[in-house]
Amino acid sequence: MDEVTEAEETAPARPPRSRPVVIAASVIAVLLVGAVIGMFLTQRAMNSDEQATPGAGSVEVGFAQDMSVHHLQAVTMANWARDHSTDPQVRQLAFDIQSTQLEQVGRMKGWLMLWGQPEQTTGAYMTWMSAGGHEMAGMSATSSSSDAPMPGMATNAELAKLRSLSGHELDVYFLQLMLRHHEGGTGMAQYAHDHTSVAAVKTLTESILESQGAEMTLMKQMLTARGAQPL
């Protein structure tokens, strides 16, 4: 048997690293990676295409500002479900949503930094979706009340209800809220995709439409399997 030195016997045990610190560090890392990718891809596209830098009020700036806010609520809901659900399928979906959308937020914030624009709009949300006379019909229908600032987003009361639930009820309500959230987000992404000429924005919106489209199909199947319907 190895001898234990007196120093080893008296050394205080190293406290385990707290989970919140680890999670916070991971979140920051993902955002930074996304920001670097966003700045690199956007700068390369602007240099190659000699495109003008998007300005305040443009579809590109408005989309990046508003979709970042939209995504961050999805991340909040996904983090809660991942930490409080006991269903492995729900927890895996929540993890996938959280990691994907955090990286995308970092990318959009990188664009805004490169374009010299604030991270959040200083006026009303969604004004970029009516720029140039274009209108997005039916978008407001995906938001349940004026307490939800953008299509598909949960209200404060709905978020409080989500945090009050557990077990099967938590899983179903999370899937219902996130499905509606994705429906609103994909409408925004489709509009941006159809009205931008910036390659980096088109690439990201295509990715959002593809990934969230697949997740919406999955969530509908998961709700059916749990005897529930979309909101």
Rank of each mutant, 00 (worst) to 15 (best):
M77L: 15
V105C: 11
H84C: 01
S130C: 01
D2A: 12
Q120M: 10
G57A: 04
A74L: 05
L179G: 04
L170Q: 13
L179N: 08
G132H: 09
R91D: 03
H84R: 13
F174C: 02
P12S: 11
M39W: 15
I208E: 05
P118S: 07
Q92Y: 07
L93E: 09
M77F: 15
H71S: 02
T122L: 15
M188N: 03
S140A: 04
T76C: 10
M219C: 03
E103I: 02
T42F: 15
T5N: 09
D194M: 02
G152K: 08
V201P: 03
H195Y: 03
Q190S: 04
M188A: 04
G167E: 06
A35Q: 10
S58H: 05
W115F: 10
M219W: 13
R107M: 06
L204R: 10
G138E: 04
R91Q: 10
P118V: 02
E119Y: 09
V4C: 12
Y173C: 02
S68G: 04
V75E: 12
P118I: 02
S146I: 00
L218I: 00
I23K: 15
S145A: 08
V30Q: 14
P54E: 05
V105R: 15
P15Y: 14
H181W: 06
A56N: 11
Q117Y: 10
Y125M: 08
S130K: 09
V27S: 09
V201N: 09
L204C: 03
G138I: 00
E103R: 11
A131I: 01
S99R: 14
P230T: 00
W111G: 02
L159G: 05
P88V: 00
